[in-house]
């Protein structure tokens, strides 16, 4: 905007930022902040696995020390070296676990933070392991050991970053909190997985196909709702009634398919699935065109139908 030229900050040459002076500090601090920031672009993703391995490898001389102590008949020395190595490995393991939890968190649009900040705890464990190695293995005195431990812990935090600490996702105007979205998504996922498990037991291939289409479409709908959860309250009802209905019907059919053969029940179940598939397609279409889901009527219709047929009583 050209009208704001009067508010421009004073000119600072690039060289001042690069080579120090008061103006260099903000840039350096921003770099540090970025290094610690949550890894939203996946830069750390692949690397944290390799790096935790490197850490364990770097601690392997402790294993040789344990063997050396064993050879010279020093049982305490051996136990110390082994314990220290285990301590390092435990820290690396915690960081790895924390990294995996962070990946799962990043993959979702709405997520609560991991219950324990494992990366941070892992970094502290690494620091403590380093300090103890200095104290009991290297024998360099308390102050140096603690300093070295603090340096290691700090370097580890810088390398691997903090764990996600806040719930992710925005609170929408309609008062839907990220937690509500997350719960609804998890519940719906569980139901879809239940349908898939029950469908695996169904012998008839065309029925399995229909169910596969329904579950795939449900996932599309979930993804859509996750992107724009403003209508979650009603969408949740939709997910619950439809998916519960599909789950119940599929389970019942799978259980009694062999008793009834190609009877009336097969036809009923198939037509129910066809209807469901059509409805799911419609809902998805509506979500795509950003129509509010006109659920209530359809829910009633389907609920009534599920009750009437109860396919399957």
């Amino acid at each position: 905007m050209s009208g704001e030229s009067g508010d421009k900050p004073p000119y600072v040459p690039n060289s001042a930022q690069r080579y120090g002076g008061a103006d260099a500090k903000p840039a350096a601090r921003a770099g540090l902040r970025n290094a610690l920031r949550l890894d939203t672009r996946g830069q750390r993703r692949v690397r944290f696995r390799k790096r935790t391995w490197f850490l364990v490898v770097a601690a392997t001389p402790l294993l040789f020390a344990a063997v050396g102590a064993l050879v010279s008949g020093n049982a305490i020395g051996m136990a110390t070296s082994l314990g220290l190595f285990a301590f390092f490995a435990f820290g690396a393991y915690l960081i790895r676990q924390g990294g995996e939890a962070e990946e799962a968190y990043l993959d979702r649009t709405y997520a609560s933070p991991p219950a324990t900040p494992r990366k941070l705890i892992g970094s502290l464990v690494l620091g403590a392991a380093t300090a103890m190695t200095g104290l009991f293995g290297w024998d360099i005195g308390v102050i140096q050991s603690v300093g070295m431990g603090a340096l290691a812990a700090g370097a580890s935090v810088l390398t691997f970053g903090f764990d996600p600490l806040r719930a992710k996702g925005e609170i929408s105007l309609s008062g839907v909190t990220p937690r509500m979205v997350e719960e609804a998504m998890t519940e719906a996922q569980e139901r879809i997985e239940g349908i898939e498990r029950a469908a695996a037991d169904i012998v008839d291939a065309p029925l399995r196909d229909r169910l596969a289409k329904i579950t795939a479409r449900s996932r599309d709908i979930l993804a859509r709702i996750e992107q724009d959860p403003s209508d979650l309250r009603r969408a949740r009802k939709f997910l619950k009634v439809y998916l519960d209905g599909a789950l119940e019907a599929t389970r019942k059919y799978a259980r009694s398919q062999h008793d009834l053969g190609d009877s009336d029940m097969y036809l009923k179940f198939r037509s129910l699935l066809d209807d469901m598939q059509a409805t799911f397609d419609q809902q998805h279409e509506k979500l795509l065109t950003n129509d509010r889901i006109d659920l209530d009527v359809e829910i009633d219709v389907l609920a009534e139908r599920l009750n009437r047929e109860t396919v399957l009583q």
Binding site: P61, G68, L84
Partner: peptide
């Protein structure tokens, strides 16, 4: 400073400390 560079440097420092401390422990025992 590039955050990636900071992370890499921090990692090198970390591995260096762990390795040196472990080696020193080995040397003490030896």
């Amino acid at each position: 400073m590039n955050p990636r560079l900071i992370r890499t440097l921090a990692f090198v420092v970390l591995v260096g400390i762990v390795f040196v401390a472990s080696c020193a422990t080995f040397a003490q025992v030896g």
